[in-house]
């Protein structure tokens, strides 16, 4: 016990606060909400928070991998619209199984295109994925002809496709199982495999990674495949839950997802961060939203609180790395 405590504190309290600020903020917020509203800590409420965070969470897993490798992916929101519209539209036309396969193939192709331009051609990831954000939004509209899509209401209750968004295993909602299951798999890959180590190396210092014999281009390319795969999974959950889709359903998600990743403490500079941190970041976002609503604040108040929490979290992180709180820039 004492050794765990020591490991966590690293000896001094200040270090503890700085290094684990996000955990402490998380726990403090939970306590505050718990005191403020007696419904907050009920099992049903907790489950509903996690369920509603699951989709952003799944996307955040992939984006975390991209961010650790030192890049950004702003195209995930548009890609979510694209994937959801496609899988919902194809569901009635070719059946749920083929629909999922075709949609996944298309989304992975988009991810591969991102990865090719950023990994192999070595273009700036922010601009490439910004361009793709716009282009994929356009592609979605072209595909749907500007109309929203729905799964035939008569089959909505009978298709097995409903299981991803509406099913459960032993009372635990399916989106939650998918989120945590995928988080476990991606987390293990990133933390414990040679591939994961290479992602950190490329993000930490891509030149040194190349000088160490790591095939940087392939690693970067692969991170965008991971990211687009996660978006595909999120699209299945969303499509299955709503049984329909608007053309712009994912609009703005790219930044919300990024906010969750940052909130968890993964640095945008690359080379640090983890899946566990992102899961916590996602949950914090979810609990802020839920807690404020239960306390009777308007829906959008959560965004203001998120703003403050992001700045505080990152500031603590930066300050911890620098060893002091005030920057030397003058």
């Amino acid at each position: 016990m004492s050794s765990i405590a020591q490991k966590l504190t690293g000896g001094d309290l200040k270090g503890l606060v700085a290094r684990n600020g996000i955990f402490i903020a998380f726990i403090a917020a939970m306590i505050a909400f718990g005191i403020g509203s007696d419904k907050f800590l009920s099992f049903d409420n907790l489950e509903s928070v996690v369920r509603s965070s699951a989709m952003i969470g799944v996307m955040a897993l992939g984006v975390t991998v991209v961010v650790i490798s030192g890049n950004l992916d702003l195209s995930v929101g548009s890609m979510l619209s694209f994937g959801t519209v496609m899988v919902v539209d194809l569901h009635d036309k070719i059946g749920p199984g083929p629909a999922i396969l075709v949609m996944m193939a298309c989304v992975l192709a988009l991810g591969a295109f991102n990865g090719f331009l950023i990994g192999f051609v070595r273009l700036n990831s922010l601009i490439v994925t910004l361009g793709m954000l716009s282009a994929i939004q356009g592609l979605t509209l072209i595909y749907s002809g500007g109309k929203n899509v729905d799964i035939d209401p008569s089959t909505q209750d009978t298709t097995w496709f409903r299981v991803f968004g509406r099913g459960d295993i032993a009372g635990v909602d399916m989106p939650i199982i998918i989120f945590f299951g995928l988080a476990l798999i991606v987390g293990m890959i990133v933390a414990f495999t040679p591939y994961g180590r290479r992602i950190y190396a490329v993000g930490g210092n891509s030149t040194a990674a190349v000088f160490s014999g790591i095939r940087r281009r392939r690693v970067v390319f692969s991170t965008y495949l991971v990211s687009s795969f996660c978006v595909g999974v999120a699209a299945i959950i969303l499509g299955s839950r709503v049984m329909g889709s608007q053309n712009n359903v994912g609009q703005g998600y790219e930044l919300l997802v990024l906010a969750a990743v940052i909130l968890g403490g993964t640095s945008l500079l690359g080379g640090s961060g983890s899946i566990l941190k992102t899961v916590i970041g996602v949950l914090i976002l979810g609990f802020i939203q839920n807690g404020l609503l239960l306390l009777g604040y308007p829906y959008f108040a959560q965004w203001i609180v998120t703003w403050i929490v992001i700045i505080l979290a990152v500031w603590l992180d930066v300050a911890a790395k620098r060893g002091r709180l005030l920057s030397s820039i003058s």
Binding site: I262, L268, F300, A301, I304, I308, I311, W315
Partner: peptide, 27 residues
């Protein structure tokens, strides 16, 4: 001021502000 005093990257600071200010507008 936040970029100056905290040394946090402008991308993150203004990403937060983007959400927060939009929240202010809605409220």
């Amino acid at each position: 001021l936040i970029v100056w005093k905290t040394g946090v990257d402008a991308f993150i600071v203004t990403l937060g502000a983007m959400l927060g200010v939009r929240g202010l507008v809605f409220v």
